[in-house]
Computed example of a mutant assay.
Amino acid sequence: MKRQTRLWIAAALMLAAAGAASAGTVNVTYKDPDKFIDVPFWDQDRTEVLKEFSEHFARLGKQLPANQQLNITVTEIDLAGRVEPRRNSMRDLRVLRGGADWPTMQLNYSLEQDGKVIASGNSSLNNMMYLQGINPYREGDLLRYEKPMVDKWFKETFTAPAQLSKK
């Protein structure tokens, strides 16, 4: 490999590392997740869904400045569609009809900067049109219909300049 190519690769890696180091942090907790309206019944499946939500919130938190920390407490989750039990399988089947089965989530949040709360609130997220429009998440994504709802909330709450200047 040529020396110049190696230098470019090293520079790119350093920029990527610097960008990751300057990102904000997110802490997600779930209040009574075994009582959520619509999270899988089986512990392993429930753990997988909550882990996926936590990882998604963490990815979004990378958009925050390094000196900010977002604390989220999820109090309710209702996934898209409805669960229908299957007789011959341990896994239930989630059926999406596009009616009154849209995804919803209730959460409380606080955004801290240098140890001081600069924004906080309670939010009720929903995506009534979850089967309409373009979905940027792949077909097999566990939370394909819930992630756009979370993305929209995050963008409207934390990246819109008018919102941040009010708080």
Rank of each mutant, 00 (worst) to 15 (best):
L111H: 02
M14D: 02
Y30A: 07
V74S: 05
K2P: 09
E76L: 05
L164M: 13
K147M: 04
I9H: 03
K167N: 13
F57N: 00
I9F: 09
P136T: 06
M90A: 14
Y109P: 02
A11F: 07
M149Y: 02
Q106M: 13
V95T: 13
S124R: 15
N122Q: 13
A12W: 05
D43R: 11
G115S: 10
R82G: 13
I77Y: 06
S165T: 14
R91M: 13
G115A: 09
E52F: 00
K147F: 11
M149F: 02
Q113P: 01
L164S: 11
T25E: 11
E52Q: 07
G19C: 12
G24R: 00
M1T: 09
N127C: 07
E156T: 10
A160D: 15
V83A: 12
R87N: 13
Y109H: 02
V74C: 05
I118T: 08
P40G: 05
V39R: 00
G140R: 15
Y30G: 06
T104H: 10
G19N: 10
D32G: 07
D45C: 05
Q113M: 08
E48V: 08
L107T: 03
E84P: 07
F158L: 00
T157F: 00
T75K: 08
T5G: 02
A100S: 15
K167T: 10
L142Y: 01
I72Q: 00
Q113A: 10
E139T: 12
G121N: 01
K62A: 14
E156V: 07
L50V: 03
R91W: 12
D45I: 03
L164E: 07
E146H: 05
I72M: 02
M129C: 11
T159V: 09
D141K: 07
N108Q: 13
V49T: 08
D32R: 13
K155R: 15
L96R: 07
A16W: 08
R144I: 07
M90R: 14
L50Q: 05
S120Y: 06
D34H: 08
P33K: 04
K155P: 01
P136R: 02
R6F: 00
M129H: 14
A119H: 08
V26M: 05
K155C: 11
A80C: 04
N27K: 12
L164F: 09
D43S: 10
W8M: 11
G24V: 06
Q132V: 14
D34T: 12
T104D: 11
Q132E: 15
N67A: 09
D34V: 09
V28T: 12
F57V: 01
L107G: 02
G140C: 06
A16E: 03
K167E: 10
W153D: 00
Q4V: 02
S165I: 14
P65I: 04
T75V: 07
I77N: 02
L93M: 15
F53S: 02
I72P: 00
L96F: 14
S120K: 12
A58E: 12
F41A: 15
T47I: 10
P148G: 07
F158S: 00
E55Y: 03
Q113Y: 06
S110N: 09
V28F: 07
L15K: 03
G24E: 01
A119V: 01
L111K: 04
Q132C: 13
F41D: 15
L131T: 11
N71M: 10
E84W: 14
G140N: 14
S120Q: 13
Q44E: 15
R86T: 14
R6G: 04
Y30E: 09
P136V: 01
N127R: 13
L15H: 04
A162C: 08
L93Y: 15
I77G: 03
T47V: 11
